[in-house]
Amino acid sequence: DYYEVLGLQRYASPEDIKKAYHKVALKWHPDKNPENKEEAERKFKEVAEAYEVLSNDEKRDIYD
């Protein structure tokens, strides 16, 4: 669930989505996790995908 990936509720505002994305993206950035790079890359891609969908009103409506 994209909301879960970003740690958000379904009623999150666009500002909340952006803030959550930056927080979680920093947490899972591969450069910040050199000891667990493969998992970090996978999680970072999930976070980016979730943000791409939830930050676009049209894609978010379809997802919801």
Rank of each mutant, 00 (worst) to 15 (best):
D1C: 15
Y2Q: 00
Y3K: 04
Y3C: 02
V5F: 02
V5D: 07
L6F: 03
L6G: 01
G7A: 03
G7E: 11
Q9H: 09
Q9V: 06
R10F: 04
R10I: 03
Y11N: 15
A12K: 00
A12F: 00
A12L: 00
A12C: 03
A12W: 00
P14S: 15
E15G: 08
E15Q: 07
D16M: 07
D16P: 01
D16R: 03
I17R: 02
K19C: 11
K19Y: 07
K19D: 08
K19M: 13
Y21H: 08
Y21I: 01
Y21C: 00
Y21W: 13
H22T: 10
H22A: 12
H22R: 13
V24F: 11
L26S: 14
K27M: 06
K27V: 08
W28I: 05
W28L: 14
W28S: 08
H29N: 11
H29R: 09
P30I: 03
P30E: 06
P30Y: 04
D31M: 05
D31A: 09
K32Y: 08
K32S: 10
N33G: 06
P34L: 10
N36V: 06
K37D: 10
E38D: 07
E38Q: 12
E38V: 13
E38K: 10
E38L: 13
A40G: 05
A40P: 01
E41V: 11
E41F: 08
R42H: 08
R42C: 06
K43F: 08
K43L: 06
K43G: 03
F44K: 09
K45G: 08
E46S: 08
E46P: 05
V47L: 12
V47F: 09
A48T: 15
E49D: 15
A50F: 00
A50W: 01
A50Q: 01
Y51Q: 02
Y51G: 03
Y51R: 02
Y51D: 02
Y51M: 04
E52R: 13
E52C: 07
L54A: 02
L54W: 00
L54G: 01
L54I: 06
L54C: 02
S55H: 07
S55N: 07
N56W: 00
K59Y: 13
K59A: 11
R60P: 06
R60L: 02
R60F: 03
R60D: 03
R60Q: 01
R60S: 04
D61Y: 13
D61W: 08
D61R: 14
I62S: 15
I62M: 11
I62T: 12
I62L: 14
I62H: 14
D64C: 06
D64H: 11
